[in-house]
Amino acid sequence: MSIYSTDIETAELGANGISKKAGWITVYQAHPVTREYQSASMEYLMFDVGLPAHSYPDKPELPPVGQALCRAADGKSWEHVEDNRGQTVYSTETRQEQIVSQFGELPDNLTLLKPQTEFDVRNGKKWVTDTQAQQAAESRAAQQEAQQALTSRLTVANTRIQPLQDAVDLDMATETERAQLVAWKKYRVLLNRLDISKAADINWPEPPDAEKAGINARG
């Protein structure tokens, strides 16, 4: 009988997790905080020695895509848990998006479903558009746009009226200038009578000499 051996000594663990025979053993490590599986390695155990911290002798079954592999909280087995890391999720309260950085089930205030508008609100398990809020916002935007257009037109009218008014005040105006002054003042009056709150129904008055004034009379 040979005094040599080419076999690798394999450690044997007792029921208490302590080696009852010295040798090599494959262990599977988990992260000390998240318990996520990290790697496998060969460890040599002396007699009456336990496994390294956060290491386990049972080989885990690899999870399918979309799930993470981690040690159960009681440390007795491996488990597969939901894994959305790297995906974009949305707050069900604010619609704000963020990237998932931890595995595990999403909390109730986050969803993978993307809201379609800034007026979407969460209704159970889906987004629904708050049409009243959307219409109100569109109305405010239309009013702001109409107000800007009105201000621009009034600026043009005031710019045209001022020199014509000067000519009339100094008794230097020609008949054409007097007629232009009246026309521009009438135009300004019509502008000031417009109801901006009804932005969608505004019928902009035609300015005198619209092409030269640089005004788009259609709004």
Rank of each mutant, 00 (worst) to 15 (best):
N84Y: 04
E175D: 15
D130M: 03
A213R: 03
I215R: 03
I161P: 01
G124F: 00
Y28P: 01
A173K: 08
Q135S: 15
L190I: 05
K20G: 15
Q162S: 13
T111N: 06
I196E: 04
K125G: 11
A30W: 04
L62I: 06
A136N: 09
I3S: 09
V49A: 14
A183H: 05
K21D: 13
S152H: 06
S19C: 14
R122M: 15
N203V: 14
L113C: 08
Q132H: 08
L51K: 03
I215K: 00
W78I: 05
Q87S: 13
D74F: 04
D166F: 09
D108H: 02
L150C: 07
R35E: 11
A199S: 15
G219E: 12
G23T: 10
D195E: 13
D130S: 11
W24C: 13
R160G: 06
L110W: 03
D201S: 15
T159S: 15
G86Q: 10
A40M: 09
F47V: 08
D108N: 05
Q180K: 08
K114S: 09
T94H: 07
K59Y: 00
E177L: 08
K198D: 14
Q147S: 14
G17D: 12
L45N: 00
D74H: 04
A142H: 02
D201K: 09
R153Y: 02
E145K: 14
K186L: 12
D195T: 08
W127S: 06
L154G: 10
W127N: 06
I8F: 06
D83W: 00
K126C: 10
S77K: 03
